[in-house]
């Protein structure tokens, strides 16, 4: 009986163009609905990983405090950052063992022939990197170390500082070079838990940063790295922590390891802020704010629209200010 039917009703498999277009249209609508949701879910997962990283670093800082009875310094006169000191606490003893803590000779950051410190800064340690950060694993830094690893997290040195270098002479606490600073981790610091009189839940220990080693404004760059830097070695300080006058053999790029609450959160995302604020400020590649680890170990996502006076108070460890809920 099928022999007399027109070809249209034959049993050959196939789609008409209309059917195909309808299917494509339906799929397009579904994709348009689902894609943003999927991407948001992926970003939420990355943000959670970032919070977890900060939590791990906060716990590592506490373990360091238990061992040494003080939080680690933000940076020291040998060119090392806080992240180098807690390597044993994050099970990176093998990297820690490669480091040379010396003023001169092999291992000095200025000596480009030394292998230990130079190779250590090229090792990718994922706990120091927020997965949302749109930066490559290593960057060839021609001026200084080759193949450095951009990092996401910096210790909080201050609630007031904006500048880090000595070519300018801003007053007192605006200047990271001045030591002691009013945060927890600054130059050659050894802050004990009892020094945090504002309360550990009201004081920021580590914050997320908007790392971007390519961007330049006011001739400074918001670059953040792990372990140590050529550009801090050697930072000349007296025994009491005050800077010596002049005669610097290194540079003062302290913001590679510490940030400051003295610059508004996410300054990098606003054109009107200065290059110094963009460099010193905490921030993130997430939308609307950034994660901050407090000295009690808690990690909170703080909005970039938070009251700036309140935000600054969170950076000082013993300012005696009243902190309202945020």
């Amino acid at each position: 009986m099928s022999l007399n039917l027109p070809p249209r009703y034959s049993h050959k498999t196939g789609f008409t163009l209309i059917e195909l277009l309808v299917v494509i249209a339906i799929i397009a609508v579904l994709v348009a609905i689902l894609l943003p949701a999927v991407q948001q879910a992926r970003e939420a997962a990355r943000r959670t990983t970032c919070r977890n990283n900060l939590k791990q670093l906060g716990i590592a800082m506490h373990n360091y405090h238990d061992t040494h009875n003080a939080f680690t310094f933000g940076w020291n006169q040998h060119g090392f950052g806080w992240s180098a000191m807690i390597l044993p606490q994050i099970e990176m003893n093998n990297v820690y063992d490669r480091l040379h803590f010396r003023e001169s000779g092999p291992g000095n950051w200025n000596n480009l022939g030394s292998a230990g410190n130079q190779t250590a800064v090229g090792i990718v340690i994922t706990v120091f990197r927020c997965p949302t950060m749109a930066q490559p694993e290593t960057i060839y830094d021609t001026n200084h170390q080759t193949d450095r690893v951009p990092a996401s997290y910096r210790a909080c040195a201050s609630g007031t500082a904006i500048y880090d270098w000595d070519n300018y002479t801003p007053s007192g606490e605006e200047w990271l070079y001045n030591s002691p600073q009013n945060g927890i981790c600054y130059g050659a610091s050894a802050t004990n838990m009892r020094d945090i009189t504002d309360g550990t839940s009201n004081t920021v220990l580590i914050g997320e940063s908007y790392t971007d080693p390519v961007f330049v404004q006011d001739r400074v760059t918001p670059d953040v790295w792990t372990i140590g830097s050529f550009q801090i070695d050697a930072w000349d300080i007296n025994a009491d922590g005050t800077p010596t006058s002049g005669a610097l053999s290194g540079s003062n790029e302290f913001t590679e390891f510490v940030g400051s609450m003295g610059a508004p959160m996410n300054s990098r995302k606003f054109a009107s802020t200065s290059g110094f604020q963009k460099q010193a400020a905490f921030g993130s590649y997430h939308v609307g704010g950034g994660n901050l680890a407090f000295a009690d170990g808690a990690v909170r996502f703080v909005s970039e629209n938070v009251d700036f006076e309140l935000y600054k108070r969170l950076g000082t460890k013993s300012g005696g200010e009243v902190i309202s809920d945020f």
């Binding site: 789609f15 008409t16 799929i27 970003e43 949302t132 749109a134 971007d212 961007f215």
Partner: peptide, 30 residues
């Protein structure tokens, strides 16, 4: 105005479309 497409061809076309739609997410600097 009738085009015959094999089911396999249509399937691969749709897969391709789906892959094209899922490109790289917004992940650049500010």
């Amino acid at each position: 105005m009738m085009i015959r497409l094999s089911a396999r061809f249509a399937h691969s076309l749709l897969s391709l479309l789906a892959i094209l739609c899922f490109g790289c997410g917004p992940n650049s600097t500010a």
